[in-house]
Write a protein that binds this DNA or RNA. Sequence first.
DNA 1: TATGCTAGGTGTACGGCGTACACTTTGTCA
DNA 2: TGACAAAGTGTACGCCGTACACCTAGCATA
Lengths: 227, 227
Amino acid sequence: MATGIDSKAPQRESVTRERILRAAVDLADRDGIQAVSMRKIAHELGVVPMALYKHVSNKDEILDGVVEVLVGEIDPPATRSDWKTAFRERILSARRVLLRHPWASRVIESRTQPGPALLAYMDSMLGLFRSGGFSMDLTHHAMHALGSRVLGFSQELFDDNADVDPEVEAEMYRAMGAAFPNILELASTVLHDDSTVVGGRGCDDQFEFEFALDLMLDGLERLRDRA
Amino acid sequence: MATGIDSKAPQRESVTRERILRAAVDLADRDGIQAVSMRKIAHELGVVPMALYKHVSNKDEILDGVVEVLVGEIDPPATRSDWKTAFRERILSARRVLLRHPWASRVIESRTQPGPALLAYMDSMLGLFRSGGFSMDLTHHAMHALGSRVLGFSQELFDDNADVDPEVEAEMYRAMGAAFPNILELASTVLHDDSTVVGGRGCDDQFEFEFALDLMLDGLERLRDRA
DNA sequence: TATGCTAGGTGTACGGCGTACACTTTGTCA
DNA sequence: TGACAAAGTGTACGCCGTACACCTAGCATA
């Protein structure tokens, strides 16, 4: 009681690197990635923007840190499973993280150097391949081939999550019909098939993701066995 | 000579949508994508920033247009080839475009809706699958699986083009050794193997790209034949 | 020839951004 | 008690996209 450090008074919890990262994640979850600015993070913490610079050196460092936080949310690899199951499960765990944080893939893509958590994740994924009997060379190619899929996302060419009302969409397809017959046919096939699919959206993203993942894993396994 | 529209005086060529797009591409090629701003484009055209808004409605429209320009640079599909060769060649042509414009993949990723040129490209690629005897369903999954690879790029997890001097890099690997043994082993394998590779860099990106592409195409072909 | 419309270009301004730099405040220990 | 360092503040700069009012030149019509 003499020292004055008694944790009595709540005294407006002070800023730390960790609180900054948490605020950034929360902000992105709540208001989207474009809401993550030094000013808004600071506001969230009840502090002036420049105060953040006592704990991080710039915004990029915050984004790097956010990626590390996200990677930290991925489950550890299952022990006592064959390499393929363990690998697949871990990727699907990463994917669940990304689905919780829809803005995350954009942030990850924007980073240019991996931090310790991401390195550890990659190292562990490499280890799974090696334990499955893959040569170092093939493991290397495999990781490149998988690309961002090892983190649970794939780069779709355009975001079909845009919510256009079905009427407009139907009109669009009609207009496209003459010029783009294959797209038209694809659209009608997909829309027809998926009447039962969750959300009524065009395609089942989870299915497409696992389809592509298994296509790669099976192909890689075949290459391993051929050698 | 009476009308006054004589094309004698050069009279400082006026702004058009096309000149705006060309200026944007040139600017990105020369100074990087972050240099593409309304102000800089306008400056490039010898005009005030707000003048651009008489020809495009906002910056997003310019970026959409830039993507269309890029897609227009992709070679048309080879006629008289089997589906796989034609498909592969066209993707590699798209890749050449992206290598000419290293900033392009970032712009493409940032777009949310495809324009006419991209739709036409996709339609034609779908057509190649169909002509190769793929069902509409399998074609659909194939396009999802390929993702941005149909446009010639793959989303690498981090950009190993960062130019760190080899000494620093070696030190990094040494430090990593204990914590990330697999990465260390991979790095030494790759660095050893690639002493002859173009540019002396870590990996041969073109090889990795084609490796992954062929892995997918072969896998897809097998699925087609099984059905 | 005079009138007025229109397309294209201008100037100013606003609110956002990241962050450099100089400052005050606060808490700790000698 | 006084010094020092760490944490937080305030102001300012140069960027960004773009809303809005304005000006100007060229043209068709009366």
